[in-house]
Design a protein around this nucleic acid. Sequence first.
DNA 1: GACGCTAAAACCG
DNA 2: CGGTTTTAGCGTC
Length: 108
Amino acid sequence: MPTLFQMKIYNAVEKIPRGYVTTYKCIAGAVSCRSYRAVGRALGRNPYAPRVPCHRVITSDLRIGGFQGQHKGPAIEQKKKLLALEGVLFRNGKLIDESRVFQFGRKE
DNA sequence: GACGCTAAAACCG
DNA sequence: CGGTTTTAGCGTC
């Protein structure tokens, strides 16, 4: 049973254009939530189908963070590979082009 | 209804 | 720069 929180996160992540990534903190702010951890946890479980590109979600450190419930392992390499295919290149586990970070609630 | 866990972030040293 | 602590919701019991 989908929760309201996960639904907002799901909607936010889905808005991320291909070739771009976002950060947990940004999503947390987009859903008016201060717990980025809850976001990562919700995405880690991925209650929704692959419709939610959780691999586009990284840490505010511009790092890969984790994937499929693990912060280390082949899943991380796969995540980097997926982002690389979208044009988001990583180096030493960090995002090279930070300009590829899509930000939500950012007032100008 | 209460306790524990988590894909992070912020703070202190 | 690195290590430790805190935070806030989700999941499970």
